[in-house]
Design a protein around this nucleic acid. Sequence first.
DNA 1: GGTCAATGTTGACCATGGTCATTTTCTGGG
DNA 2: CCCAGAAAATGACCATGGTCAACATTGACC
Lengths: 214, 214
Amino acid sequence: MDPTPFTHPPRSVGRRERKKLETRERISTAAFALFVERGYEATTVEAIAERADVAKGTVFNYFPQKRAFLSAIADAWTRRITSELGPVESWTGTPLDQLKRVARLSAELGVRHREFARLVIFESMREAHAVMAAKKTPAEPPITNLEVVARQVVARGQATGQIRADAPLDQAASLVAIAIYDALVHWLVRGGSVEQMQRALDGRLDIVFTGLNP
Amino acid sequence: MDPTPFTHPPRSVGRRERKKLETRERISTAAFALFVERGYEATTVEAIAERADVAKGTVFNYFPQKRAFLSAIADAWTRRITSELGPVESWTGTPLDQLKRVARLSAELGVRHREFARLVIFESMREAHAVMAAKKTPAEPPITNLEVVARQVVARGQATGQIRADAPLDQAASLVAIAIYDALVHWLVRGGSVEQMQRALDGRLDIVFTGLNP
DNA sequence: GGTCAATGTTGACCATGGTCATTTTCTGGG
DNA sequence: CCCAGAAAATGACCATGGTCAACATTGACC
């Protein structure tokens, strides 16, 4: 944050910090490439280390478990989406429209790498629950997962009277998020065109939002 | 089926068949006990073999992957539920009531072994998708998972006019099932009383079924 | 009762995710 | 230029899920 550091934590972005970032980048790039080439399961950590020109132990320094790669990718993808859409406060249209937009962007990963996207989605569901299980509220509530986005959209909808105010926010948000996940997973698993996916998505969300009508 | 066998497949239930069942039983019992005692991850296949008094290889003869234990338990649980409730055709009350009943019974496993139930539910979701991914329709459609039950209930509801007939069956069933899973998983992960679980469940299902009203 | 093919069991073996004590690299200060 | 301590890289090592060729048991048939 502060470009002119001051005391104990010497924040100068020296060679060390730079190299660290570079290494991390090399590793995650190698991992992603291999996942796409051979699939996630078929890619060994050893191979990732190899391609990143690093020892195996180093890989685990940056990504403490193999699964962490999936989370990292999910995060990157979500960041990309949220950066594309801007802050939630600026979104326009009905809550339903807003969420359909988010879902459609989310699906784009699946257009290119279906199998892989499936794993990422599964992992991000796992992660969401794991985070919940660790009771502590995340210090900086990250916009990393669909449920958080859904909650914001639903809350705004309730504030503007477009969504039944008496629906419990927790439950409504969770339901909306899971409905989207469900549509995505079905599509990723079953295959089919993007249009089919849209229909699957719209069908589910229409039901839910009918139920959420004021 | 036929007690007096006839030709090639000699169906007498000899020692061999009996022993096989016994062994399978011993193994799955051992596994379940250990899972409850130490947790799933902390239980090694070696330990299961040990307690079942069998070599490790034998365990894998019956349960080709460790995860298969979870599926087996999910199956047993579902069978228990469906046997308790009888055939779907005989269920009474509104579709909503019917599904709430199913969900409540499903939750009972979680009352005793929360962590374990979570894994079982996750696994049965995984499984459901894996089955879908393998395109072939399962020869004998097993009543093994929630989605199948949901589909039947929804279909009946549509036939009797209690559910919007224009809602696509696939999507409605999937949404209902996932809503139940979601409530269960949230409860299992977050903790809380059974009453809280019921509320989480009812909240979600009420939204969905409002959306499915004719 | 003996024979033999089918079925079931076994444990040595492998692959791989993950750990950790040791070594190397970096940086700030004298 | 050197030193000390911190940070990061390393690879030997471990635990464990899963495989498989060799071995044991079974029971239908003679």
